[in-house]
Simulated scan of single mutants.
Amino acid sequence: MRLLFALAVMVGPVFSSAALAQECPAPADVSAELEELFDQAQNAEDFREGQAASDAMWKVWLRAPDDAAQAVLDRGMAARGSFDFVEAYAQFTRLTEYCPDYAEGWNQRAYISFLREDYAAALTDLDRALELQPRHVAAQSGRGLTLMNLGRIAEARRQMLEAVGNNPWLSEKALLAKGAPLGLEGEDI
């Protein structure tokens, strides 16, 4: 009996991972919901309203396609929150393998790569996230920051302008100010 239990514990994750990869449903179409939130952000009259729209966007992005994906996302977020970037990266990799069409899995893995200063890997994952969800503001701003760290300032500026165009309440907007790293050409430090 103990041998069977030990075997099940060792082999179970292999089978469940393989089974999960075939069962992830397509992510819900959230484009109309996000479009409304972009409008709210762009028409917000103050920080409180703008932040409420931004927070609501995050709730949409962090809504995984099913309970299994949500559990993996939540474990990755918890690991990231405790600065266990190795475990967070492993969880987000599992999520991208299980749900390759879920943009937030790629965005979160990119963020871990960014924090680890692996900007090339971050950029690859951000590009995939944006293929899946072109107006994913967090991926857009993350891509702008990644490009900036790669020294690709003109591209970074364009990407950040696009992100801020979708959500003018992003804190990264400060990077576009006069004298800031992504400030308008001719106005850089």
Rank of each mutant, 00 (worst) to 15 (best):
L3D: 12
L4F: 12
L4A: 13
A8F: 11
V9M: 14
M10Y: 10
V14S: 05
F15A: 13
F15R: 00
F15I: 09
S16C: 06
S17A: 12
A19N: 12
A21P: 05
Q22A: 12
E23L: 13
C24D: 09
P25M: 07
A28N: 09
S31L: 01
L34T: 08
L34P: 01
D39P: 00
Q40F: 06
A41E: 07
Q42L: 09
N43P: 04
D46Y: 08
R48T: 14
E49R: 11
G50T: 04
A52H: 03
A53G: 01
S54F: 10
A56H: 05
M57F: 06
K59F: 07
A64C: 12
A71H: 06
V72N: 04
D74K: 11
R75Q: 15
M77N: 14
M77D: 08
A78M: 13
A78Y: 07
R80A: 14
F83Q: 13
Y89C: 02
Y89R: 13
Y89F: 11
Y89T: 02
F92W: 04
P100G: 07
Q108W: 03
R109C: 06
Y111L: 13
S113A: 15
D118G: 00
Y119W: 13
A120D: 15
A121S: 15
A122S: 14
A122R: 05
L123W: 07
T124R: 15
T124N: 10
T124L: 14
D127C: 03
R128I: 07
E131V: 04
L132C: 08
P134I: 01
R135K: 09
H136V: 01
V137L: 07
Q140V: 05
Q140D: 02
S141F: 03
G142T: 05
G142I: 06
R143I: 03
T146S: 04
L147K: 13
M148F: 09
L150V: 08
I153P: 00
A154N: 12
R157H: 02
Q159E: 15
N166G: 14
S171C: 00
S171W: 02
E172N: 01
L176S: 08
L176N: 09
A177S: 09
G186F: 08
G186C: 11
I189H: 06
I189F: 09
